[in-house]
Design a protein around this nucleic acid. Structure first.
Lengths: 214, 214, 214, 214
DNA sequence: TATGAATGAGTTTTCATTCAT
DNA sequence: CATGAATGAAAACTCATTCAT
């Protein structure tokens, strides 16, 4: 029996749950919920199978933690963008999209999005949480901003919610493409470039109208 | 009313595979591959578990059949749209999108798309087949049409592949939304309306420019 | 509907059971009872799976028929050998062994023996039938002949049953070797040569005794 | 009585595989490979079905382990016998046979031999391993010893390999008899007695020749 | 707390047997 | 009689979860 207790470099137990969730995210994103094996998650988190049950009661709980943990940071980002000073719409949008596309490129939202989509029928509560807490507020905010800009005469008329959807769709598709087709040899999509070109086009129109060149 | 009543016979070898694939599509789309139970597929197809193995060697084979069977009809649709008379780009596009959005609204592509995305890591061959046989050709054709229209001076410059992605993204997102969020109480997205407004906007631009006709 | 009945070359239905038994013998000998598939037997017999059930109620019944059908012809052979005129023992034995080893070389007893050995615990009735109807009578007859020859002073003393076993063992081992090791590349055993040399040796002794050369 | 009572603990990773192999040997020897149920093996080993899969990947692997584990100890025995001091052939042989027949009487080779014979077509690799590692070396050694004794003038001429086969056959048949016919009521064969009488006879000859010493 | 051997319920897969044609 | 599609009971195998250490 060692006289002086544990080695000081031992990982703090307080970090364990996060490490497990991080490992679980990888495995779930790769295999989906049902095909993911607790043993793989444990191995990737560097703990034993049994240790996982010290922090989570069931496999479903881990999954829930993973998906819910993906909400908060993105929610913050959305809130931050909404809190921007109300300049003109074009500038607002360009700023937002820049932030968004860098977040999307840098984080693992991709995997979580895949999971939310793929397991929406098996975990409706999670799809709902994602919708209610993240997707709907974000979409709502953007819809509101568009409507306001329309009222101000900055934007043409048109259903503002559909406009909002049009705006973010390519980025979402870019993420899905990266998760789905790039790994099997498809040409990658340059998400920031796509986002920028899309927004430019969206803002300026693509048809060259006689006498109305930009 | 049929003169002699429907045959209630069990022997229908020729029809079985399609019935099984149809049932499997429903179950796989709902649960994903791993969580789908052969027993459920069998029950929904109205056959016994054993009968499935008269037509498919493994569960994976059923899955493959489902996903591959989703390629051909859509491929035909793409081909048909490409064979359209070469009018001006706007008309071509409006026609294509109309077809596309009605197909998307009427068929079960939604479920298959979900499966392809969700199981892309577990069945890379299928993701690849979908990409190589359907997604890439379709995207390529659209990219070509856009590039041609740019050359003709109908469209502004810009990366034509990214343009093509921008164009179809909202429809894809609409389908995913329908599969993911509508079932948990989210406001549905009117896909045809979205598609039309998106195309209009894409073609005409959304910013009201001084001196530009509507 | 054909006016004149069946084509005359159609196989007589009376032959069917035998054909099935013959096919079953092959498959059972190769795979053993449990691993043999009815479908394989049917295919090898050139009939449908269903047809088998017109002649046999269960798979076990086919197996019983196969094993029992292996008894009768061999039993006849034993009887014939026993009915031989009581010459001196050596001649009797040489005749018997010649017959025996040619039978063994020409027929499929090998496979049946394998089956009887391998399935003796699963079908004790069959092991018993083989013992009671074939093995025991044959062994008994030979034991009797040896005992008689001992009484006549032709043979040295010794347990006659053990002597009988000694005598036939090499032939049995030869058959088992042929079924077991020859197919995996072992040098084959020349059963007739083995039988003859064994009997010669058995009759004459192998030690060269001083002053007693044959 | 053990001082502290037997540990009734479940955790015995090191012992499990052997316990499972021992249990499997019994079940396989009784039922054959295909008819043996994992559940029976597990029950006889005192573990759950699942525990077996902690040590063996498939049912076939267990079978292989059982059969291969039967090779080594017998191989040792053969080697030991061969290492005997080169006395005259008769003594060598009597020693060998004594060892052999006691081993055969005391161990479970019988069951394994049955399995090797019965499953030779389903597991050719195992039949081959038994032949190459055990049967062939043993037979070869004996063949060599016989040939040498012939050269020394101790033994009469004759194919030494067939001689070797003649010599061991009765013991093999004795084992098979014990496994096959004794359980269904046949008179048992006294294997050591059979072996001794066989060797005596083999060495001395059975025909009483005029003028020959006993 | 932490481990990982052990459990057993649940799933895929096989195949003897049935039965509609 | 004959067929072979269909059935469903049985068996191999997996893996989330428990628990002795």
């Amino acid at each position: 029996m060692l006289p002086m207790g544990q080695p000081k470099f031992k990982r703090r137990k307080a970090d364990r749950p996060d490490e497990i969730v991080a490992a679980a995210l990888e495995v779930f994103a790769e295999k989906g919920f049902a095909a993911a094996r607790l043993e793989d998650i444990a191995a990737r988190a560097g703990v034993s199978k049994g240790a996982i049950y010290l922090y989570f009661a069931t496999k479903q709980d881990i999954f829930r933690a993973v998906v819910e943990q993906g909400i908060a940071p993105n929610l913050d980002m959305v809130r931050a963008s909404l809190a921007a000073p109300t300049g003109n719409f074009a500038d607002l949008l360009r700023g937002l999209v820049k932030t968004l596309s860098s977040v999307v490129a840098a984080t693992s939202v991709g995997g979580i999005v895949k999971m939310v989509i793929g397991e929406s029928r098996n975990f409706p509560e999670l799809a709902q949480a994602w919708h209610d807490k993240l997707v709907h507020p974000a979409l709502d905010a953007m819809t509101g901003a568009i409507a306001a800009a329309q009222v101000r005469g900055e934007l043409r008329p048109g259903d503002p919610r559909l406009h909002a959807i049009s705006l973010i769709s390519p980025m979402l598709v870019g993420v899905i493409w990266r998760e789905t087709f790039t790994p099997v040899g498809a040409d990658p999509i340059d998400i920031p470039a796509l986002a920028q070109q899309h927004v430019d086009l969206w803002l300026r129109g693509v048809l060259i109208e006689a006498g109305a060149a930009s």
